[in-house]
């Protein structure tokens, strides 16, 4: 009892004379986190708030905190103007389609490749995996022009009314924005590492029971690989959504363009910054919504892959 009283009085004394260092550290940590949060949130806040302001007010507010506050002459005029200037709905649908198909095919193809390298007896698979990983060091920009030439040599089926004909060249198509990005060395590596962590005894037992490799893949390995699928999906989705250079080079028709190309529509001699912010908000919202919906998987994917998406 005396000890408890002493402790209590010590605590009270400590509270009255000097602040508790642990508590201080806690408060300091929170302040640090809030400041860090502000640093990352303010550009987004600025973008959303500025999308509601006329151009002159955006620049007028820049020197004060008003730049981040929804004050002054607010309206949705910039959003209306965006649709007059850019076929934004079409671009959004294109990007959603291209990103979704790239993700689904990416998960399928890369997991199959990784499964073969992880589970099947392939001669020289160590070298194959090394070669696949080695391709990671080649930046896409250096491959872009040869890739343009290459996709331009590929055969394609063209539908003209009821006539189906075989022509050459994938330029100005949807598939040219999807297929080159389906197979991905990093995704294969991630799947391979994850598959290696699944006990081989499971598929050995299934083999003894007569299961085919594909059955083992689809019934044992893939159902156990949820985190790897989530990681690869996210890491495939982000570059597909943010894709800019490639569609710029291979897509000529407006109806096939993705959202990122739309940003360039606003950079004319007289730039309308309110419209730029409105369009940026529109194309950022799907990604922010996706992040909120899959926050846990997103953080896990970054933690497990060691890269920022």
């Amino acid at each position: 009892m005396a000890t408890t009283l002493e402790r209590t009085s010590r605590r009270a004394g400590a509270r009255s004379t000097s602040p508790n260092p642990r508590r201080l550290r806690g408060i300091g940590g929170w302040i640090g986190r809030i400041l860090l949060g502000i640093v990352f949130a303010f550009p987004l806040l600025f973008m959303f708030v500025s999308s509601l302001k006329p151009d002159q007010q955006i620049f007028g507010d820049l020197s004060s905190i008003a730049a981040f506050l929804p004050v002054g002459n607010l309206s949705f005029d910039n959003y209306g103007a965006v649709f007059d200037r850019v076929p934004a709905a079409r671009f959004l649908i294109n990007s959603i389609g291209i990103s979704a198909v790239t993700v689904i095919l990416g998960v399928l193809i890369n997991s199959l490749a990784a499964f073969a390298l992880s589970r099947m007896r392939v001669r020289g698979k160590g070298i194959i995996l090394t070669l696949i990983i080695a391709t990671l060091i080649v930046p896409f920009e250096t491959l872009a022009l040869p890739l343009v030439w290459w996709v331009n040599q590929l055969p394609t089926l063209e539908l003209d009314g009821f006539n189906l004909s075989l022509t050459t060249g994938w330029l100005d198509t949807y598939q040219v924005q999807i297929i080159p990005f389906v197979a991905n060395a990093f995704s294969i590596y991630l799947f391979h590492q994850y598959f290696d962590s699944i006990p081989k005894e499971l598929d050995e037992a299934a083999r003894v029971d007569g299961a085919s490799w594909f059955k083992i893949y689809r019934k044992i390995v893939m159902p156990l690989s949820g985190p790897a699928i989530a990681t690869v999906s996210i890491l495939t989705f982000l570059p597909a959504w943010n894709s800019y250079l490639w569609p710029l080079m291979v897509v000529q028709s407006e109806e096939l363009r993705p959202v990122m190309i739309g940003v360039q529509y606003f950079f004319q001699l007289n730039v309308s910054w309110g419209q730029v912010m409105a369009y940026s908000s529109m194309i950022t919202l799907p990604v922010v919504a996706l992040f909120i919906a899959f926050q846990r998987s997103f953080v896990n994917s970054i933690a497990s892959s060691g890269v920022k998406g």
């Binding site: 389609g97 979704a100 539908l159 022509t167 198509t173 949807y174 598939q175 999807i178």
Partner: peptide
């Protein structure tokens, strides 16, 4: 997805 790529390919050839 595979079907979608096919259908996109069929309707997506523009002015190249």
């Amino acid at each position: 997805a595979a079907a979608l790529v096919g259908s996109m390919a069929a309707c997506g050839t523009g002015g190249g």
